[in-house]
Simulated assay, not measured.
Amino acid sequence: MSSVIQAALFAAGALVGSGITTAVLHKKTAQRPVVDGTIVSPSAVTTVSPPVIGLGPNGSAQITNIASVASLSSSAVLKYGNPGPIADPIIRRAYVAAYDRRLRHPAWTAEHLTLASLGKSPLVSPPDEAGDRTKSSFMEDESIPKPFRARLADYFRSGYDRGHMVPAADAKFSQEAMNETFYLSNIAPQVGDGFNRHYWAYLEDWCRRLTGSFSDVYVFTVPLYLPHKDPDGKWRITHEVIGSPPTISVPTHFAKVVLTTKPTSPSTPNILELATGAFVLPNAPIPDETPLERFVMPVEAVERAAGLSLFSDAVKSTSKHICQSTKCEVVVRRFDDARKSQRADGRRAISAP
């Protein structure tokens, strides 16, 4: 992966603590090295390792220092270019993400939810014109190079919903923000009935409701490809691919990883109590009555499976589990029933909030 792009994705994510919500990534460029009298192209660009959420000196959460390491581009072997892989940076009003060119869906998305961002804070006036999803439409993301871009036609009659990784309901503070959640670069194929329109939507709603108990809620959504054990005793990863030609991979599972913060006491508003948790759901119908805690997994398991570093060891060791800080219980709401009128033309329902 291009480390400069990777660092931009992570550093542009929401920062935890003291009301800071964005990080500024500084990148350095070096003079082009000369190898055997030849200027290496591209120029040697400092590779920046992705920061993770860590603990500050006063106990508050913050982004750890960004460390620089040598770039592969400085190698004479790659004098004509680094082939990748590359994750495209996506920085929107309501979220940041990394787009996986090979899988044609996000590698991960990240959000920062608060009562104010959801338009529910009594201290902040709601927007004059909130987002209305009936005014939004799915669209291809032209910022993604065309050969690697997910297309609307790829989902047509695929049998899968265009599942939001960042829900539209998390971006109601403006129409522009909501529209950006409908880019296909924020979409992955999801089973519709019983998952995207039901249990997955309940989990998204649960994440929003956390803002009622915590001052800041950070949500990572991660598509996963997990192995299963075949009758011959061997472990394999198999998944469907949709599109014409088939290019969009269908994840076997999806993870929601949350980090919440709130002051430890009114007298120490800058000292934060942290809670973390990870939930891994199969991309399959899930009965409404299934307890959410059945899907609890260690954050480290998600990190290993996805190849990501979400939180520092200090955060992991000092945070409570989210189910110890609040009730891990979804509220069953049939979002799809409210949209039956929108399916009168025979099209499949759009994703739940």
Rank of each mutant, 00 (worst) to 15 (best):
Y202N: 14
V219F: 01
Q175L: 06
V166I: 15
D205L: 14
R133D: 05
D154M: 10
M165I: 11
A150E: 06
S174K: 09
G243S: 09
P145H: 06
A153I: 11
E142I: 08
K172E: 11
M178R: 06
H228P: 00
P167S: 14
H164M: 08
V217N: 00
V219A: 01
H239Y: 11
D170G: 05
R133E: 07
Y225N: 11
P245N: 11
D154F: 07
Y155W: 03
E240G: 00
M165Y: 01
I144K: 07
I187G: 01
P227R: 04
T221Y: 00
P231A: 13
M165S: 07
S136C: 09
F195H: 09
A150Y: 03
P145D: 14
S185N: 12
R208M: 13
D170C: 07
I187C: 08
R151Y: 01
D170A: 06
Y202T: 06
Y183A: 13
T238H: 00
Y183I: 10
V191W: 04
D141T: 14
S143K: 05
G212Y: 11
F182I: 15
A177E: 14
P223K: 02
Y225P: 03
E240V: 09
D161R: 04
A153P: 01
M165D: 03
R209F: 02
N179L: 11
P231E: 12
Y202L: 11
Y183S: 14
T181H: 08
L226S: 05
L184A: 12
Q190G: 12
A171Y: 01
D230F: 02
K229I: 05
P231G: 06
F156L: 10
G159R: 12
D161V: 07
A168D: 10
Y183N: 13
V241W: 03
R197I: 14
T211A: 09
Y155C: 08
F148I: 09
A171S: 15
A153R: 13
R162K: 14
K234L: 10
A150R: 05
F182W: 09
A169K: 08
I242R: 04
K229N: 07
E180D: 15
T221V: 11
I144T: 03
N179V: 11
F214P: 04
P189A: 10
K234W: 00
M178H: 05
W235T: 04
Y183P: 07
K172W: 00
F156I: 06
V241H: 04
I187M: 13
T238S: 03
D205R: 15
P189E: 10
D141V: 10
Q175Y: 02
Y160D: 02
R157Y: 00
T211E: 12
D230R: 14
W200L: 10
L203F: 12
G131V: 01
P227D: 08
A169R: 07
S136M: 02
L210A: 06
P245V: 14
N196T: 08
M178S: 05
F182P: 07
Q190L: 15
